[in-house]
Design a binder for these strands. Structure first.
Lengths: 232, 232
DNA sequence: ACCATCGTTCGGCGGCGGCCGAAGTATCGC
DNA sequence: GCGATACTTCGGCCGCCGCCGAACGATGGT
């Protein structure tokens, strides 16, 4: 039919375990070099090159050459959204990770992380719930920011209103969390919120991964702004 | 990593043009027989059998045997949602369909159709816009049913409130329309709305496909309830 | 009982594509 | 310049998988 071959070729980009692992790694929203991705997926650099070519040609990734490095990242928030939808569609047996290091890394990720450009994990869900309780979000009839929530973002947090209307991206959207099985705030409001938290030093990345944790000043701010106290 | 192989195998189910065409055909929400799908995708029955096995084993489809027929349909609204997300991710060159028959079928589909279990096409978008204008939906901060919209569904249309809370499916959700590039109402509210329209004889399927059109009584009802007059 | 229809299983063919290593090109630091 | 590092291109190997036709159940109609 009309778009079956398009759909098949799009799915084909993710139908290989190595390419899937590359895309999942890039879900942290940052740019990785080709070599990092090759090491991360445990394939030869030449193999990674081939995969990156296919993903870039397919429009899922964009690249930026910088010196002798090739940086690559997800092309678009919509690509991240697409990946989230697919990962959310995996309610299959989640075999527990083996080894202690994997277990603690996994615990840190459950506690808090970035999901492309917004907050996820228990931290993301807790912020979302607190905003809902404070009347800033309305999850009763869907997932929407209230007028009070819009004011809170722009006036209390200082987000520029123009930054909330980027392209045709939705303002607020629920993103299903794959560790918490709950929705957390995504969309441009979620992206600006995460950006503000990072910029204010309220949260910090742990090491080089996508795990994040609140800083002492962040804990104080979250308590004052949203009444959040129990963050671990 | 944790779910790369799961993601790859899920994507692999859709990475074949024939299987993709099968899933898109099933997006009309109805059950098809294996033979119908074989004819629709122009492959031998034995080939279709193999594909259906893989899709059922992968959890995307469920089957029901009835006499010498094997009926198959999408397993779940979440599978439909997943497919919608992927199709929405295709802003690639949509080569115009060739041939007059394809063109008129395509025009009927653009005018109105079912998208799994809710309304889509210009009809679906028009209903969604009218509901938004009447204060029944709020698309400003996301996509949510207002309290008035909830009352309208249950009192004016007679939808049982219990039918709106099915499992953990969201009540209202925006679904990006691939012909109109606009959002229309999905989620359980969208499903009940479509069900009610069909049950009241306000819309009828055209032939055996998923295209629908308003009936004369439906036009009157849409005009009285939502002020919709220009439906073609 | 018989045939027609629907679906399935099996074997075999052919091509696509993922993998690697070796050789080649670009860039950085000294 | 020179070596080291980052990446790419190329060729070849191998396995997977989509396709079909033919033969084989299974069901329903007559």
């Amino acid at each position: 039919m009309i778009s079956a071959s398009n759909l098949a070729s799009l799915a084909g980009l993710l139908a290989d375990e190595t390419r899937a692992a590359i895309c999942l790694a890039l879900l942290d929203g940052r740019a990785w070099t080709a070599g990092e991705l090759a090491a991360h997926t445990r394939v030869a650099p030449s193999t990674a090159t081939g995969h990156l070519h296919r993903l870039v040609d397919g429009g899922l990734l964009v690249q930026r050459r910088q010196g002798r490095h090739r940086y690559v990242q997800l092309a678009d928030p919509s690509v991240a959204h697409l990946l989230e939808s697919l990962v959310a569609g995996l309610d299959l047996r989640p075999a527990p990770p083996r080894g202690l290091r994997a277990a603690t890394a996994s615990a840190a990720l459950r506690r808090g992380r970035t999901c492309y450009d917004h907050l996820a994990g228990r931290l993301g869900v807790a912020v979302t719930d607190a905003m809902t309780g404070a009347g800033l979000l309305d999850q009763r009839g869907g997932f929407a920011l209230t007028p009070a929530g819009l004011g809170w973002l722009t006036e209390t947090l200082g987000v520029r209103p123009a930054a909330l209307r980027s392209g045709n991206r939705p303002l607020a959207r629920g993103c299903l969390d794959w560790t918490e099985r709950r929705q957390h705030l995504a969309g441009s409001a979620g992206a600006r919120l995460c950006e503000t938290f990072l910029g204010n030093g309220w949260i910090a990345r742990i090491g080089s991964g996508r795990a994040v944790r609140p800083t002492p000043s962040g804990r104080a701010a979250l308590r004052d702004l949203l009444g959040l106290t129990d963050l671990d």
